[in-house]
């Protein structure tokens, strides 16, 4: 009889233990699963060298906004756009294109963009004055490896220049005397980043075994000056100085004699 309440108590505390154990076990499994899951997602979305369809928003926003429905892929009349498959090592299910295989032919009605349900392809970014305008798309930027571009060897080739849909604007040809022969000219292509849409027709047209001109995402291909350089010769750029505030800093000058540093080891240089 005396045992009865303690047995009940035992059972209650056992139930409590079981409950706590079950909760901690669930939390543990969730933590482990969450870790593996998030690590995988982090890796799977890390790919930078992807060319997105025209009008694509910034890559970070693109990854959270694109719902991976493939409507842009279905809308593309040239089968340019692909959806990343498992094994492609690209963020799974998102659209991209490989210009050396099939470039973007820059349809004036841009069928891939208005059909996007999620806003990952932003119509307003390829619209001027209320009309769709593929020429302002920024899918990427063509860059040239002048070591493997035969025009830089002095051989006449303007395949990329001729292939460019913005002929003479996105790629221009520069003339330079060929000092080696003394009587020929170098006719070398130059890409203008403010015009180039990254369609990749040049990459497709390039005659070398592996294209010497190729499209990279703009984020990868371009540097950034930063706002501390101002073009003093440009009135518009100089306007940035209006309302600029002065920041005064003061560096303390060392009290040691300059001659001393010649006699010491290099330690006090750092």
């Amino acid at each position: 009889m005396q045992d009865a309440p303690s047995k009940m108590e035992n059972r209650a505390s056992n139930d409590r233990r079981k409950f706590i154990l079950r909760m901690t076990r669930s939390a543990g499994i969730a933590a482990l699963g969450g870790f593996v899951w998030s690590a995988y997602v982090d890796e799977a979305t890390a790919s930078q060298l992807l060319l997105r369809p025209p009008g694509a928003i910034k890559e970070d926003d693109f990854l959270r906004t694109c719902i991976k429905c493939g409507l842009c892929v279905e809308a593309c009349p040239y089968n340019t756009l692909l959806l990343a498959k498992p094994g492609d090592n690209k963020p799974m299910g998102t659209p991209y294109f490989i210009p050396r295989d099939i470039p973007c032919y820059m349809c004036p009605d841009i069928p891939c963009v208005p059909i996007c349900p999620s806003g990952a392809l932003d119509e307003s970014s390829v619209t001027t004055n209320g009309v769709l305008d593929i020429n302002i798309a920024e899918m990427g930027l063509a860059v040239i490896d002048d070591e493997s571009c035969i025009a830089f060897w002095g051989i006449q080739c303007d395949a990329c220049y001729r292939a460019c849909p913005l002929l003479g604007e996105a790629i221009s040809v520069e003339y330079k005397k060929n000092e080696r022969t003394g009587k020929h000219a170098y006719l070398t292509p130059v890409v203008h980043s403010d015009i180039c849409t990254g369609c990749g027709l040049c990459e497709k047209a390039c005659v070398t075994e592996k294209a010497a001109i190729f499209v990279l995402p703009r984020e990868v291909a371009m540097g950034r000056v930063g706002n501390y350089y101002i073009k003093g010769w440009d009135k518009d750029d100089e306007k940035r100085l209006e309302g600029a505030k002065e920041i005064k800093t003061k560096t303390e000058i060392s009290k040691d004699s300059a001659v001393d540093s010649l006699n010491s080891d290099s330690g006090d240089l750092y």
Binding site: W37, T45, K85, G93
Partner: peptide, 19 residues
């Protein structure tokens, strides 16, 4: 936390259907 649609990148449903 990651700012991406987590399940959509591993979902076998959309993987198979897309596939």
């Amino acid at each position: 936390m990651m700012g991406v649609t987590a399940f959509e990148f591993i979902s076998p449903i959309s993987m198979l259907h897309r596939g």
